[in-house]
Protein backbone atom coordinates (compact mmCIF):
# COMPACT_ATOMS: atom_id res chain seq x y z
CA UNK A 1 0.00 0.00 0.00
CA UNK A 2 1.24 3.53 -0.68
CA UNK A 3 1.77 5.85 2.27
CA UNK A 4 2.81 9.48 2.44
CA UNK A 5 5.16 10.09 5.34
CA UNK A 6 7.13 13.06 6.59
CA UNK A 7 10.56 11.88 7.58
CA UNK A 8 13.10 14.36 8.88
CA UNK A 9 11.04 17.28 7.59
CA UNK A 10 10.85 15.85 4.06
CA UNK A 11 7.88 14.17 2.37
CA UNK A 12 8.53 10.51 1.52
CA UNK A 13 6.28 8.13 -0.40
CA UNK A 14 6.57 4.49 0.49
CA UNK A 15 4.91 1.34 -0.71
CA UNK A 16 4.66 -1.12 2.17
CA UNK A 17 2.21 -3.50 3.85
CA UNK A 18 -0.07 -1.52 6.18
CA UNK A 19 1.00 -3.53 9.22
CA UNK A 20 4.73 -3.17 8.59
CA UNK A 21 6.22 -1.41 11.62
CA UNK A 22 7.73 2.01 10.99
CA UNK A 23 11.12 0.58 12.06
CA UNK A 24 11.30 -1.72 9.05
CA UNK A 25 9.90 0.90 6.69
CA UNK A 26 12.73 3.20 7.77
CA UNK A 27 15.42 0.54 7.61
CA UNK A 28 14.50 -1.69 4.69
CA UNK A 29 12.36 0.59 2.49
CA UNK A 30 13.84 4.06 3.04
CA UNK A 31 17.40 2.88 3.82
CA UNK A 32 17.61 4.94 7.01
CA UNK A 33 19.63 2.70 9.32
CA UNK A 34 19.76 4.92 12.39
CA UNK A 35 16.79 3.32 14.17
CA UNK A 36 17.92 -0.12 15.30
CA UNK A 37 16.13 -3.40 15.77
CA UNK A 38 16.68 -4.67 19.29
CA UNK A 39 13.70 -6.65 20.55
CA UNK A 40 10.66 -6.06 18.36
CA UNK A 41 8.39 -5.73 21.42
CA UNK A 42 9.03 -2.14 22.46
CA UNK A 43 11.11 -3.21 25.45
CA UNK A 44 14.63 -1.99 24.62
CA UNK A 45 14.29 1.43 22.98
CA UNK A 46 16.89 0.83 20.26
CA UNK A 47 14.27 1.68 17.61
CA UNK A 48 13.25 5.00 19.20
CA UNK A 49 12.27 7.83 16.84
CA UNK A 50 10.41 11.09 17.45
CA UNK A 51 6.82 11.38 16.24
CA UNK A 52 5.89 15.05 16.42
CA UNK A 53 8.67 15.47 18.98
CA UNK A 54 7.54 12.60 21.20
CA UNK A 55 9.84 9.58 21.66
CA UNK A 56 8.10 6.47 20.34
CA UNK A 57 9.16 2.87 19.68
CA UNK A 58 9.12 2.53 15.90
CA UNK A 59 8.90 -1.28 16.13
CA UNK A 60 5.44 -0.88 17.68
CA UNK A 61 3.90 1.56 15.20
CA UNK A 62 2.47 0.17 11.98
CA UNK A 63 3.20 2.42 9.04
CA UNK A 64 -0.55 2.98 8.65
CA UNK A 65 -0.64 4.60 12.12
CA UNK A 66 2.17 7.09 11.52
CA UNK A 67 0.94 10.66 11.91
CA UNK A 68 2.90 13.85 11.48
CA UNK A 69 6.62 14.38 11.34
CA UNK A 70 8.99 11.56 12.12
CA UNK A 71 12.50 12.51 13.23
CA UNK A 72 15.11 9.79 13.12
CA UNK A 73 18.61 10.13 14.53
CA UNK A 74 19.81 10.98 11.00
CA UNK A 75 17.54 14.03 11.05
CA UNK A 76 18.22 15.33 14.56
CA UNK A 77 21.03 17.59 13.38
CA UNK A 78 19.46 20.39 11.37
CA UNK A 79 21.39 21.87 8.45
CA UNK A 80 24.54 20.09 9.53
CA UNK A 81 24.43 21.60 12.99
CA UNK A 82 24.58 18.93 15.69
CA UNK A 83 21.93 18.89 18.39
CA UNK A 84 23.38 19.80 21.83
CA UNK A 85 22.79 16.19 22.89
CA UNK A 86 24.84 14.88 19.97
CA UNK A 87 27.63 17.28 20.89
CA UNK A 88 27.51 16.22 24.53
CA UNK A 89 27.51 12.54 23.50
CA UNK A 90 30.72 13.14 21.53
CA UNK A 91 32.36 15.37 24.15
CA UNK A 92 31.74 12.86 26.93
CA UNK A 93 32.56 9.84 24.75
CA UNK A 94 29.33 8.17 25.84
CA UNK A 95 29.22 5.24 23.43
CA UNK A 96 30.81 1.87 23.82
CA UNK A 97 29.35 -0.34 21.10
CA UNK A 98 27.05 2.53 20.15
CA UNK A 99 24.14 0.40 18.99
CA UNK A 100 21.56 1.86 21.42
CA UNK A 101 22.82 5.43 21.39
CA UNK A 102 20.67 6.82 18.57
CA UNK A 103 17.60 5.71 20.51
CA UNK A 104 19.03 7.05 23.77
CA UNK A 105 19.68 10.47 22.22
CA UNK A 106 16.15 10.69 20.79
CA UNK A 107 14.59 9.74 24.13
CA UNK A 108 16.73 12.44 25.73
CA UNK A 109 15.72 14.96 23.03
CA UNK A 110 12.07 14.28 23.77
CA UNK A 111 12.76 14.80 27.49
CA UNK A 112 14.66 18.08 27.03
CA UNK A 113 11.97 19.46 24.75
CA UNK A 114 9.48 19.17 27.61
CA UNK A 115 11.83 19.63 30.54
CA UNK A 116 14.88 21.75 29.64
CA UNK A 117 16.62 21.19 32.99
CA UNK A 118 15.83 17.67 34.14
CA UNK A 119 16.93 16.28 37.50
CA UNK A 120 18.56 12.84 37.83
CA UNK A 121 15.16 11.47 38.79
CA UNK A 122 13.57 13.02 35.69
CA UNK A 123 16.30 11.51 33.54
CA UNK A 124 15.92 8.09 35.15
CA UNK A 125 12.18 8.15 34.53
CA UNK A 126 12.47 9.28 30.92
CA UNK A 127 15.38 7.02 29.97
CA UNK A 128 14.44 3.75 31.62
CA UNK A 129 12.82 2.45 28.43
CA UNK A 130 16.20 2.44 26.69
CA UNK A 131 18.53 -0.45 27.48
CA UNK A 132 22.26 0.11 27.11
CA UNK A 133 23.72 -3.40 27.21
CA UNK A 134 27.22 -1.90 27.61
CA UNK A 135 25.83 0.05 30.62
CA UNK A 136 26.98 3.55 29.70
CA UNK A 137 24.23 4.93 31.95
CA UNK A 138 26.54 7.18 34.00
CA UNK A 139 27.66 8.97 30.87
CA UNK A 140 24.22 9.18 29.32
CA UNK A 141 23.03 10.94 32.46
CA UNK A 142 26.02 13.29 32.44
CA UNK A 143 25.60 14.06 28.73
CA UNK A 144 21.94 14.98 29.19
CA UNK A 145 22.89 17.35 32.00
CA UNK A 146 25.65 18.83 29.88
CA UNK A 147 23.34 19.34 26.91
CA UNK A 148 20.73 20.94 29.18
CA UNK A 149 23.26 23.51 30.32
CA UNK A 150 24.61 24.07 26.82
CA UNK A 151 22.50 27.05 25.73
CA UNK A 152 25.09 28.51 23.38
CA UNK A 153 25.55 25.86 20.71
CA UNK A 154 29.07 25.72 19.40
CA UNK A 155 30.16 24.51 16.00
CA UNK A 156 30.55 20.84 15.29
CA UNK A 157 31.92 18.15 17.58
CA UNK A 158 35.36 17.84 19.01
CA UNK A 159 37.57 14.92 18.06
CA UNK A 160 39.51 15.03 21.30
CA UNK A 161 37.70 14.96 24.59
CA UNK A 162 38.45 16.81 27.79
Amino acid sequence: MPFQLTINRKPRSVDAPADMPLLWVLRDVLDLKGAKYGCGIGACGACTVLMNGEAVRSCQIPVSAVKGNITTIEGLAEEGKLHPLQKAWIDLDVAQCGYCQGGQILSAASLLAKNPHPSDADINAAMTGNICRCATYNRIRAAIHQAAGDSATKEGGSHAGA
Binding site: D31, L32, K33, G34, A35, K36, Y37, T72, I73, E74, L76, A77, L82, L85, Q86, W89, I90, D91, L92, D93, V94, A95, G98, Y99, Q101, G102, I105, G157, S158, H159, A160, G161, A162
Partner: peptide, 23 residues
Protein backbone atom coordinates in the same frame (compact mmCIF):
# COMPACT_ATOMS: atom_id res chain seq x y z
CA UNK B 1 44.47 11.26 28.43
CA UNK B 2 40.79 11.24 27.51
CA UNK B 3 39.75 10.87 23.86
CA UNK B 4 36.38 10.51 22.29
CA UNK B 5 35.94 7.45 20.08
CA UNK B 6 36.93 7.82 16.43
CA UNK B 7 33.48 6.70 15.22
CA UNK B 8 31.44 8.76 17.66
CA UNK B 9 30.24 11.32 15.13
CA UNK B 10 28.88 8.49 12.99
CA UNK B 11 27.32 6.85 16.04
CA UNK B 12 25.43 9.96 17.17
CA UNK B 13 24.21 10.81 13.67
CA UNK B 14 22.98 7.30 12.91
CA UNK B 15 25.35 6.49 10.07
CA UNK B 16 25.48 2.84 8.98
CA UNK B 17 28.27 1.10 10.89
CA UNK B 18 26.93 -2.18 12.17
CA UNK B 19 26.35 -5.62 10.68
CA UNK B 20 22.61 -4.96 10.66
CA UNK B 21 23.16 -1.78 8.60
CA UNK B 22 24.71 -3.55 5.61
CA UNK B 23 22.74 -3.03 2.44
Amino acid sequence: KRYTGVDNLKVVTGQPLFGIDVT
